[in-house]
Structure formats: C-alpha cells, structure tokens
Simulated assay, not measured.
Amino acid sequence: MLKLQHIGKQFDGKTVLDDISFEIGTGEIMSLLGPSGSGKTTLLHLILGLTGADRGSIVFGDEDLTRVPMKKRGFNIVFQDFALFPNLNAYENVVYGLRNKKGLVSPKEVQEYIDFLELTPHLNKKIGELSGGQKQRVALARTLVAKPKLLLLDEPLSALDGVIKESIKQRIQSIAREFKLTTLIVTHDPEEALTMSDKILIINQGRIAQFGAPQDIIGRPANEFVEQFIIKQLRIKRQNIFNLFGEMYA
C-alpha cells in the first residue's frame, strides 16, 4: 500500500534522512521510532507532502506521489497538540473540514464515526471542557470523516497518561482494523511502538537502525543502538512488555 524507496533529505547541506526504504500494507500500523532529532518527524512530513524529498520515491498503491502536492495526496494527520478550534464545540470541530467537501460523507456516516469513538455525549462541549482523551477522539473523528487514504499521527499519546492513554491506543488499533486504514505513528517511546504496531521503523541519525515486527526487534535487536534504545529503556516498564512478549523479554 505504501512504499518508500531510497528517500534522502537535506536541510542547509546537512543530511537529515539517508536511504530510507520500507513497505507497509493496507490496514497495518507502523511506528516511526527514534530519539529526538533522528529524522522521524521529517519523514512523516515527507510522506504527508509538507516538504519534498531530495531523492527517492514515495508510492501509494500504484501511484507515484513523490512530486504530488499535499492537497492531492489524500493523506490526513493528527498533530501532537490536536489542533482543534477552541471557539467551536466538539461537533463543529469534527465536521469543520467538510465545509468545502459537499457530498464526501453523509450525515449518517458522520454519526457512525462519532458513535465509533463514543463522542455523542460530548458533542455540544467546547474544546476547553474536554479531557485530553476526549480531545484526541475529536481530532481522530475530524480526520476520519475526511476519509483519508493514509492516517498519520504525530506523538498521539504524548499528552495523555494512565487509563486514557491505554484507551486511545486501543482506539487507534480499532480504527486501523475497522476501516482498513494504513496508519503511521511518530513516537519516541519504545513501549508505545511495541504495543501498538504491526511494524516498527527505528531511525537513528537519519538512517534505518532496524525495521521489523515488534517481536523481531525485541528478540533480535539489529545493533548496539537498538539494544540500548529499546531494551534498556524498557526495563523501567518491564512488566508491561513482559506481559506482551513473555519469555522473549525475560
């Protein structure tokens, strides 16, 4: 569904991304994982179309999108700060992007997305009256009603904690499965990547450190960086990861 080949990007003569290649299928969730400054957000922006690649190609389905403008790609992003309009209520935020897209979705379909994300009791609330988890669900609903071909999430859990974070993780997984929506998540947190994703792309200093399924990365870290970044950080959260991967992580 989405295929990147030999992507490279420089800013002011400095290489930010170098020879990035990967492929993910329909309905899969992939996390872009790495420390701050590793290039993962730049890669997300390249896929979205906010900035262009210096070399390489971006293919979605059978279409080469490398030089296609962002507006014509049909991808949508949920930003880290949700980017909701505080002067509008939750429902108005959900349907805001449909003003100039008459006929894209029916009122019944909009309500189905709202019901799926359990937002009906909160539709008349202003954004300031919502919890962090409710804001995230509004942002997700606003994105889903636009019927994106690809869903991009920039640090979607960073402002959440505890039960709310776990709930949103499950929502994101349900969205990908229910709507067969290929989803890319930028995160700096190994636990988030390992517990949410079908595949993980670990980036270090603009290059791929490892790409694979969570079980493969846990069981066979490709190099010392992955060992340090993934395994040692996860020892703090050992029980959560042990519950998922059992003896592999013991």
Score class of each variant (00 low, 15 high):
215 Q>Y: 11
223 N>C: 08
209 A>P: 04
238 R>G: 01
220 R>N: 15
235 R>Q: 14
158 S>V: 13
202 I>S: 11
212 G>D: 08
239 Q>G: 01
220 R>P: 00
235 R>T: 05
220 R>Y: 11
186 V>D: 01
178 E>N: 07
166 E>S: 07
196 M>K: 08
171 R>Q: 15
233 Q>S: 14
225 F>H: 11
199 K>V: 07
157 L>V: 06
223 N>V: 07
225 F>G: 06
215 Q>D: 14
182 T>D: 10
158 S>R: 08
207 R>M: 14
177 R>E: 15
212 G>T: 05
179 F>G: 04
162 G>V: 00
179 F>T: 02
166 E>Q: 10
156 P>E: 00
157 L>T: 12
196 M>R: 11
221 P>N: 08
170 Q>R: 13
231 I>D: 04
228 Q>K: 08
170 Q>Y: 08
208 I>T: 15
169 K>W: 04
215 Q>I: 13
222 A>Q: 07
216 D>C: 00
187 T>L: 05
234 L>Q: 06
170 Q>V: 13
220 R>D: 10
202 I>F: 10
210 Q>G: 11
187 T>V: 07
226 V>T: 03
197 S>P: 05
209 A>N: 03
207 R>S: 13
216 D>Y: 04
188 H>W: 09
207 R>L: 09
189 D>F: 09
234 L>C: 12
211 F>H: 12
188 H>K: 01
227 E>F: 09
236 I>H: 03
218 I>P: 08
228 Q>N: 13
221 P>M: 05
200 I>K: 06
199 K>S: 09
217 I>Y: 06
202 I>L: 14
211 F>M: 02
196 M>Q: 09
220 R>L: 02
170 Q>D: 13
207 R>A: 14
179 F>Y: 15
205 Q>R: 14
207 R>H: 12
174 S>R: 14
197 S>E: 01
218 I>K: 10
238 R>E: 13
219 G>V: 03
237 K>P: 00
177 R>P: 00
206 G>M: 02
220 R>F: 08
201 L>F: 02
180 K>F: 04
202 I>Q: 12
223 N>A: 02
211 F>Y: 15
217 I>L: 05
204 N>C: 06
184 L>M: 15
227 E>K: 15
184 L>R: 04
161 D>T: 06
183 T>Q: 03
187 T>R: 10
229 F>W: 13
189 D>V: 12
168 I>R: 11
179 F>P: 06
185 I>R: 03
217 I>P: 07
225 F>P: 11
210 Q>P: 12
167 S>E: 13
210 Q>V: 12
184 L>Y: 07
175 I>K: 11
191 E>G: 02
183 T>G: 01
219 G>E: 15
183 T>K: 01
230 I>G: 10
200 I>G: 05
185 I>V: 15
240 N>V: 12
162 G>L: 07
229 F>C: 10
169 K>P: 00
237 K>D: 03
195 T>S: 14
215 Q>F: 12
235 R>Y: 08
172 I>G: 13
174 S>C: 05
190 P>I: 03
172 I>Q: 09
202 I>P: 11
203 I>V: 15
183 T>V: 01
184 L>S: 07
159 A>H: 10
168 I>G: 09
